[in-house]
Design a protein around this nucleic acid. Structure first.
Length: 484
RNA sequence: GGCCCCUUGGUCAAGUGGUUAAGAUACCGCCCUUUCACGGCGGUGACAGGGGUUCGAAUCCCCUAGGGGUCACCA
């Protein structure tokens, strides 16, 4: 076999949802794991759906995640142009050839007639199929009507008997009755090809060896096969991918599912985690490992590892995996990524972000969750003194008040405000009082944060908030407690 | 509805005729511990159902059920 060539052929809708990205990933992996080429082709034959800037979304996403194409509209290649709207003349030529070969025909049926047909089949409760009205027009009549300026499309002429079988690498052999195949439109009345035609022409002309796409194309693949046959072309290796479903089992939709790469990325999921996670939706390395970089995926990827059944996109697991990637970051890297989120939550207080990052690093699964975890830094929330009661710690409002006073005095006397100093002095106090750590530290943590859970304990928070603010908050705590 | 496809714990999944049916996540418990988190240890939980084939079936065949895809001058 020659060089493996795969392609990712999105239509520019301005939106890269997770399923599309995964298709791109797999196409890339199949090419790269075979030292092949990965091509980007833009399928923009639907002019009504033109979206400004949509192609940039595609470029940007691929660039961010590191899926680099070897050929494409932006970088060229030997098989261009890589934008379908620029290949109009090519499709036209092949459509004519196909007509000559008897695999297609001109059709002059207008929308009204078609709608009528559709209405009829709906009433009869049978699936709509073009009735072949124009299938056998004479050449003369066709010429005459075209010259008269009648609008036309070109339809594929499906065999009316027999079956068509094709082999898919993941789904195996699939056979359908030719009679169930509709005479699809190949060239629209605006002269543009439909996907049904363009994908076959382009895949052939661009020497695509492995066609990778979602399983929603499974049912139209026989038609494409017939096209290849009509032209006498080699049929590529088909690799249809199982769908990715939403948590409720429905197909991903951009309306509700919100599972676009962009959304996830903006929410604070790391690109490495997203790629790693979606790689595992529908593919398994066959081992127990599950953390892979893109390069490692290239190394491990095998078509045999693809599964047939659809996978549900599970945010919980993505979260966990994102946490894994965050924990792998160095403190400095984490700090850098977290800073914008700190800025969002901290407007007034002056805190050392590196100290904060030490606390947040193992406590962050998704970056966007950072602000709510540190919302107490700017403003001490108005909390209930019940917070001072901790069963296991055996703290009560009374003991809390007593120990808070002790803490206040110790901390107030501290000149050098750093973790070790705070720690040692507080521990001394605890020793002197002869109580458990929690007796002192729990009330301190509550007084400083006013929250039930915080990143870090009393000592860490004291260091973070600084002497002045810490003392102020402890005082507030004592006041609350003595009032009760 | 026709056609096509799919079906192992809540989720992702290994498994290709003989296994105590992996692992991960989630959940629960214990340990660590100044809360939480991290980390460590342990636990609950699955072959959709029914028929075959076979000495033996999660693995092969059939039926049923459930789910999905597709039936456009969209891709």
């Amino acid at each position: 076999m020659g060089e493996v060539r795969t392609r990712f052929a999105p239509s520019p809708t301005g939106y890269m949802h997770i399923g599309n990205l995964r298709t791109a990933l797999y196409a890339y992996l199949i090419a790269k794991s075979n030292d092949g080429k990965f091509i980007l082709r833009i399928e923009d034959t639907d002019q009504d759906r033109y979206v400004e800037g949509a192609i940039d979304v595609i470029y940007n996403t691929l660039k961010i995640v590191g899926i680099e194409h070897d050929e494409g509209p932006d970088i060229g290649g030997d098989y261009g142009p890589y934008v379908q709207s620029e290949r109009k003349a090519i499709y036209e030529k092949y459509a004519k050839e196909l007509i000559d070969r008897g695999g297609a025909y001109y059709c002059f049926c207008d929308k009204e007639r078609l709608d009528n047909l559709r209405e009829q089949s709906r009433n009869k409760k049978i699936p709509f199929k073009y009735d072949g009205h124009c299938r056998n027009l004479s050449k003369e009549e066709v010429v005459k009507r075209i010259e008269a300026g009648e609008s036309y499309v070109i339809r594929q002429k499906m065999p009316q008997t027999g079956t068509t079988t094709f082999k898919d690498e993941v789904f195996g052999k699939i056979t359908v009755e030719n009679s169930s195949l509709d005479d699809n439109i190949l060239i629209k009345s605006d002269g543009m090809p439909t996907y049904n035609f363009a994908n076959v022409i382009d895949d052939h002309l661009m020497d695509i060896t492995h066609v990778v796409r979602g399983s929603e194309y499974l049912s139209s693949t026989p038609k494409y096969n017939l096209l290849y046959k009509a032209f006498g072309w080699d049929i590529p290796t088909y690799i249809h991918l199982p769908l990715i479903l939403r948590e409720d089992g429905k197909k991903l939709s951009k309306r509700e599912g919100d599972a676009s790469f962009e959304d996830l990325y903006n929410k604070g999921y790391l690109k490495e985690a997203i790629i790693n996670y979606i790689a595992l939706l529908g593919w398994s390395p066959g081992t127990e490992e599950e953390l892979f970089t893109l390069d490692e995926l290239v190394e491990r990827f095998k078509i045999e590892g693809l599964s047939k059944s659809p996978a549900i996109f599970d945010t919980e697991k993505l979260k966990w995996m994102n946490g894994e990637y965050i924990r792998k970051l160095s403190l400095e890297e984490f700090n850098k990524l977290a800073t914008p989120y700190y800025d969002k939550a901290i407007k007034k207080a002056e805190v050392d972000y590196m100290i904060l990052s030490k606390l947040m690093h193992t406590r962050t699964e998704v970056l966007s969750h950072i602000p709510e975890q540190i919302d107490f830094i700017d403003d001490l929330p108005d909390y209930d003194i019940d917070l001072y009661i901790h069963k296991r710690m055996k703290t009560t409002p009374e003991s809390a008040l007593k120990n808070l006073k002790e803490v206040y005095d110790v901390l107030e006397a501290l000149d050098d405000w750093n973790f070790d100093n705070i720690h040692d002095n507080l521990m001394d106090l605890i020793g002197k009082l002869g109580v458990k750590n929690g007796q002192v530290l729990w009330p301190l943590r509550v007084a400083l944060s006013g929250k039930q859970y915080t990143p870090g304990g009393g000592i860490e928070l004291a260091e973070l908030l600084g002497k002045e603010e810490s003392l102020k908050r402890i005082k507030i705590g004592m006041e609350k407690l003595s009032k009760s």
